[in-house]
Design a protein around this nucleic acid. Sequence first.
DNA 1: TGCTAATTTCATTTTTTTTTGAAAAATTTG
DNA 2: CAAATTTTTCAAAAAAAAATGAAATTAGCA
Lengths: 171, 171
Amino acid sequence: MPHLSPINGKQSIQQTEKAIEIESIDFFVRMMSIMGMPRSVGEIYGLLYFSEDPLPMDQIVSRLGISMGSASQGLKTLRSLKAVRTNYVPGDRRDHYLAETEFRRLFSNFIKEEIMPHMESAKERIAQMEEALTYQDEESTEFYKVRIEKLKRLTRAGGRLLPALAGLLKF
Amino acid sequence: MPHLSPINGKQSIQQTEKAIEIESIDFFVRMMSIMGMPRSVGEIYGLLYFSEDPLPMDQIVSRLGISMGSASQGLKTLRSLKAVRTNYVPGDRRDHYLAETEFRRLFSNFIKEEIMPHMESAKERIAQMEEALTYQDEESTEFYKVRIEKLKRLTRAGGRLLPALAGLLKF
DNA sequence: TGCTAATTTCATTTTTTTTTGAAAAATTTG
DNA sequence: CAAATTTTTCAAAAAAAAATGAAATTAGCA
């Protein structure tokens, strides 16, 4: 059985890089999945995060063993979150991708793109509830008014807190 | 065609309640889905949120048109998040469910139960990366060390910020 | 402009998640 | 304790989400 983690002695740099890459992919697949992103998105980001050189899409495809379609779709998602950017490599017509590693900006974009749009819909739902109450006598609606007020405070707090959250990531 | 939203005149209280219930279910289905919860969980909470009386499971089943299994499973999830609690109703052997409406506590529980466990796994992944670097010469690992350090700061910040987040919901 | 390589799109397939419903288990009370 | 009712469990079905791969499109270059 080969030594995977020698107690004495060195590993080749390639072994080390491969080991870190695997952990990185695992790390980001989990983290992205908390944020509701598909596996492939986490895999791509995890690969790029520990890559010193920008990688073209076909490298991503072959090193992760995913399809062209997944890679293209995943990179599109990551681009929209500004989690990756492309880098011009002279003499090569392929796009080369690089991970954006400022997490503060990443989260800020995630909240703006993925969470805040839902806030609008939430406000509409609340407006509909109040509309329904308009056609109702004053009595017997106290319970509803109180609960609607709670929802309003929740969405207000969410709308303020979430965008501020990324700013708190001062690390 | 019946008047659904009369411009002049009143609606029956039942119509109003039904209208609010529909909006509430829509509201919470969306919100819960952001948090990765299945539709049925949002539906149940949305129904209970605007119910003055605690509801037994069979009422939840018939009013939402979902199966016993879904209801049982959904209520189990909501109980584990402390998003609902049961209420004793004299002379009735069924459990009656009531929505917990303190959102601060809800989020606090959600973060503790659904997010924090992932932090542990994240720390393990980082530890594995550092382990891999141990068997490596000092040179040529600077890039990896810097990136690993970033991940550590991220998980540290997350581990502190997320539990504090619910506390910020002072509304 | 035309050729080639790179990328995107999208219908189909695969995988994963959620729901169903009926059987099993648990609970209440006469 | 037994009968009736309520609740849970879980295998199977249905629905939803993600991945594939090949055709269509786009972009770079001679």
